[in-house]
Nucleic acid binder design. Structure first.
Lengths: 232, 232
DNA sequence: CGATCGTATATTGGATCCAATCGGGAACGC
DNA sequence: GCGTTCCCGATTGGATCCAATATACGATCG
């Protein structure tokens, strides 16, 4: 079995965590059917906590449940992906605008530390570190709900990027954009920083959409894997 | 029992719908403990679908579940309420900006019909109609996720407005603001309309916050009711 | 030969039963 | 008198069992 029986709080919470992790990482690709029985036995619990977790995931928009048919991992259309990035751009630009005047030396240090970490990190960590960098810049804005929404949009889009496209990805370019964004924040150039942030997000969107629309081959490869069974 | 056994899809979905309705309408006030047993017998189902519904509500942020202690209806702090309105303002201004150039005669007609309906409607319908008006203006933007987020923020804030404050509320003022906003949209005055919308939302926020911070009496009255039991 | 209806099976939805945990109160000791 | 400990009731979490429903396959009839 692929999972180890963790010992923490409730079984439902563990199942939720495990499933969410696997969905957001792309380990379980969009379109995949989630069978309660299989998940239950893989995690060593009964179907009840699995169902509770699935319900929660549905409310989070990560799976879609149809009565008596089961749960399927959702997949965002190109339009939905575009919109997710647009929403991020709107919210994060606003956050940055609020934040820049109050960014402290501490914040800059942490942001730089994250960038340094990102330079050396393995691809699986890029997503989290990238987001950590963004959030570091928004801390003084003190708008947790907005950050949470933006994060949700970020993760929900990122999982659609096929794994091969992540490693060969545009990390250098991203890092350049990060560093110039950080510089603009240091100079308290609100308008410049917001423009840079907007461009940065638009860039990421364009990259994802380019991969998805030009290379349906990769998508197909991911889809076929679901048929073979993922029980190893 | 307060609920009639509806016959539709699954029991869990019915419970979810019923609970969400009651929470968003303010019928079940924030801070209230939700006992599975009671809800189950009131709706004539077992505790299982109730738990599934509660899990979903937790993911929606309407209740908070603590292990082995139960579910409590969440209550937003003043800061959180302020932020919810700010997020609405950001997203809806963006939506309006996208929308105005493409608003058709049809849209204006529908918006006006909603305003007319609002003039005559009972207080319980104000919330839905108010939102329907806003959404009518955003239709050409074709950004369903953003609308959905804004709606969630709207509903989540509105349920905190004590019922007495709703009826004596500022409907006339709201309607004036609605009509001038609509006029600006007709004139394709993007900047003016966005300013008006921003002011409109800020107004609503100020009203709610004024009621909540000046009149903790009403809040206390609501809280005490929870002790008496709501079984009628 | 094809379409349609029925049945059989797999899978989900729900109910009941049991276990784990929390809260409060009583008994005990200091 | 006050604090501590232990136990009991209440409530939630989880497992097993049963019911309902959808899908697939095959039989029957036109």
């Amino acid at each position: 079995m692929a999972f180890s029986k963790l010992e923490r709080s409730t079984a439902a919470a563990q199942v939720l965590e495990a499933l969410r992790e696997q969905i957001l990482s792309g380990d379980i690709p969009g379109g995949e059917q989630l069978r309660q029985e299989r998940i239950a036995e893989e995690l060593g619990v009964s179907r009840v906590p699995v169902r509770e977790a699935l319900n929660q995931l549905e409310a989070e928009g990560l799976v879609r449940i149809v009565s008596h048919k089961g749960a399927v991992v959702t997949r965002l259309s190109l339009d939905e992906l575009r919109e997710a990035y647009e929403i991020r751009a709107q919210l994060e630009a606003w956050l940055l605008r609020l934040s820049i005047p109050n960014l402290a030396a501490d914040d800059f240090l942490r942001a730089e530390a994250i960038l340094a970490e990102l330079d050396a990190a393995a691809p699986e960590q890029w997503s989290d570190l990238n987001w950590a960098f963004h959030v570091a810049l928004y801390r003084p804005a003190a708008r947790p709900q907005a950050v949470s929404i933006a994060r949700k949009m970020y993760l929900n889009a990122y999982r659609h990027l096929p794994v091969p496209a992540r490693v060969m990805g545009h990390r250098d370019r991203m890092q350049r954009e990060h560093r110039s964004l950080l510089r603009l924040c240091r100079e308290r150039d609100v308008e410049g920083a917001c423009r840079a942030l907007d461009a940065h997000i638009a860039d990421a969107a364009a990259g994802l959409i380019a991969v998805l629309s030009s290379g349906p081959a990769a998508e197909a490869a991911v889809k076929t894997r679901k048929k073979k069974g993922r029980s190893e």
